[in-house]
Design a binder for these strands. Structure first.
Lengths: 243, 243
DNA sequence: CGATACCTTGATCGATCTCAATGTCGGTGG
DNA sequence: CCACCGACATTGAGATCGATCAAGGTATCG
């Protein structure tokens, strides 16, 4: 509700887009950027905690997340979305909400489909994103199925750190993470209280500290160990497109 | 190890393939089946419980499953694969094993990539499969995060029943499921003993019975209720290809 | 008949949830 | 400037669900 002055940058020209190297359209050569612009149907800004109603968009700035609720009203966070991510809503009953203030490019479904139907490289880029989503979900499933609270928390923190690193949004020892403990809890199938205790334990053991929106990795080895971190960084086997 | 006479059919000509309507290549018109045949690099038969080493294949007969283990040796089943499913190995550290005796067509990665790079419809068909995988994983994640043992079991049984139905492998009231209780447990993050108790409870309450490789849905409504079943059947938003 | 794989049951233990406070901090209105 | 408020984080105690450990039971197969 609070308006505050918006520090959130809005996406500008596709040609100079800062997140394109990480986004769906990274495979489109500079000479054909015009075709991208025609797929973009709107630019939008959504404030933290607001729902996002557009069904396909590329996040430009800020974080978002997808979630569902069970009939008894408990929330499960399905994935976090970072700048550059292609997000699709209502693939199922899932909702998408802004975690921080966000800005993004809304894509026209039909025009995107048409573009992909004409450009196999783009379709494969789309598939590549899906393969990554799947890999992430599989890791998370393993967390919820077979890791204890500390392991789950450590694993998610490492995952987010890694994703940020790849985009240049983190240094080796830490990163800003705009999450609340409730987000961690709802992503990991824990109660807020227990998530809190797990974080406290990580801090107590000198493994990692996550406070005031900042993650600090104090002992990477211990953390990977706790998380059962797979050294293999999930290589897509079929979507070896250019980038 | 036991040889038995193999009741497992081997895939034959692509043109007459019985599972193609559900498989990646469903989008290739009959006139161009020849191109499919060139992607197939081998036909294989793998016995129940054996590992599958091929990295990309279309399952033709039997069931398979993907799984990982945590460093402490606990198994997490990531997904079950049914006839027609495209399966990729080693996208991460995950293994694939035959659940029953299986037969499948091994695909040559490079030739498949080349085909998809030439035929956007095929690439989109690939993406479509990934979207479905993702939807399934999200449902499962919700199960492990927010549903209790009975809910998880009910949900997975309904999911498998639905997938079989769509292929004509089930009737409204039940279906053959070649799983052991250990598979349910490892897919759902439960101990075998507790999975057993959950199944017993479902039977006791007249909801569903899963015994000797057969699922019987006794009270569909109660079961969906327990499972927190989402009525929305996960519609892909971007991959509206022909089939 | 024994062996093996799978299912079932019981008793106990422990991780995590729930419920109920308390603490902290930034912002806001007086 | 101060008192208050709301959002979030933290802590404690007790209740629970599901894990573990330990036996049996059952069926199939050689």
């Amino acid at each position: 509700m609070v308006a505050k002055n918006s520090p959130i940058p809005l996406p500008g020209s596709c040609a100079a887009c800062a997140v394109r190297p990480f986004a769906l359209f990274r495979v489109v050569p500079q000479a054909r950027v015009g075709e991208i612009a025609r797929v973009r149907s709107a630019v939008r800004l959504v404030r933290a905690n607001e729902a996002i109603r557009d069904s396909v968009f590329t996040l430009y700035a800020g974080w978002a997340f997808s979630w569902t609720t069970t009939p008894d009203g408990r929330r499960q966070i399905l994935d976090f979305h970072l700048p550059g991510d292609l997000v699709e809503r209502s693939e199922d009953g899932a909702e998408v909400s802004a975690l921080t203030d966000t800005s993004f490019c809304v894509l026209a479904k039909d025009r995107l489909c048409e573009f992909m139907g004409r450009d196999p490289g783009l379709a494969l880029s789309y598939a590549d994103g899906l393969v990554r989503d799947r890999a992430r979900l599989r890791e998370r499933l393993t967390s919820l199925g077979r890791r204890d609270a500390m392991g789950r928390v450590a694993h998610l923190l490492l995952e987010l750190h890694g994703r940020l690193s790849r985009r240049g949004g983190a240094d080796r020892t830490g990163a800003p993470l705009p999450l609340k403990q409730a987000h961690l809890a709802d992503a990991l199938g824990l109660s807020v209280e227990h998530a809190n205790r797990a974080l406290a334990a990580l801090r107590r053991d000198g493994v990692a500290s996550f406070q005031k929106g900042r993650l600090d990795i104090l002992d990477r080895t211990a953390m990977e160990d706790l998380a059962g971190w797979s050294t293999t960084p999930a290589q897509p086997v079929l979507t070896r497109i250019g980038a």
